[in-house]
């Protein structure tokens, strides 16, 4: 299953548009049975702030978090605001457990009004996902306003390539299963011996 996060705010949203196209490209490369679950962060805006204050995700937002952490691959798309990812986008990743995306294949996307911010993916998004130890595919897609009206095939080509890279990584190197510390505690003798 591919989880898709869109941090777009508008309706309709170019961020959602890009997220859908990236998801379609990855799903096509993976095959017809691929499930896609899309999460609009705007729907969870209040719950996300609550979670930063209380330390736990509540209600339908908890389901959204589980969708992302349980997914085989993640597509994360944000608008660029003031030269970086949006606050809403960052808030979502702030409330995740630090190891919850470890080894998970991730495809990044961003949208903006001008192509001048295209490097935001590389200086802002990639370090965030590197810290979370996610496996980010080489191609990320930035779509400026003008890309949507361009007759050239640059944007569709990039989308297809990025989707194929995510599909390949999901097939070749799926995220490792999580160790459950509540099911398999470190025996006390080991703790006492200072092994951990």
């Amino acid at each position: 299953m591919i989880a898709v996060i869109s941090a777009g705010l508008g309706q309709p949203s170019s961020t959602r548009l890009l997220a859908d196209r990236l998801a379609a490209a990855a799903a096509e490369a993976l095959g017809p049975d691929t499930a896609v679950e899309t999460i609009e962060l705007r729907d969870h805006a209040h719950a996300m702030v609550d979670a930063t204050l209380t330390g736990f995700p509540s209600g339908t937002f908890r389901t959204a978090v589980e969708t992302v952490t349980d997914a085989d691959g993640l597509i994360a798309v944000t608008p660029v605001f003031n030269a970086s990812y949006s606050g809403l986008f960052k808030t979502f990743f702030d409330v995740l457990d630090r190891d919850s995306l470890e080894g998970k294949p991730v495809l990044l996307g961003a949208t903006g009004g001008t192509p001048r911010h295209s490097l935001a993916i590389d200086y802002a998004l990639r370090p965030l996902f590197a810290y979370l130890r996610a496996a980010v595919v080489p191609t990320a897609v930035y779509a400026a306003s003008e890309d949507w009206g361009s007759g050239e095939t640059a944007l569709p080509d990039r989308i297809t390539r990025a989707g194929a890279e995510l599909a390949a990584l999901m097939s070749a190197r799926p995220a490792p299963p999580k160790d459950d510390p509540y099911a398999h505690p470190v025996p006390f003798e080991e703790l006492l011996a200072g092994g951990h």
Binding site: P181, Y182, P185, V186, P187, F188, L191, H196
Partner: peptide, 10 residues
């Protein structure tokens, strides 16, 4: 912390 639950149990 599961370690503390383990400690109490020990």
């Amino acid at each position: 912390s599961p370690e503390i639950a383990e400690q109490a149990a020990y």
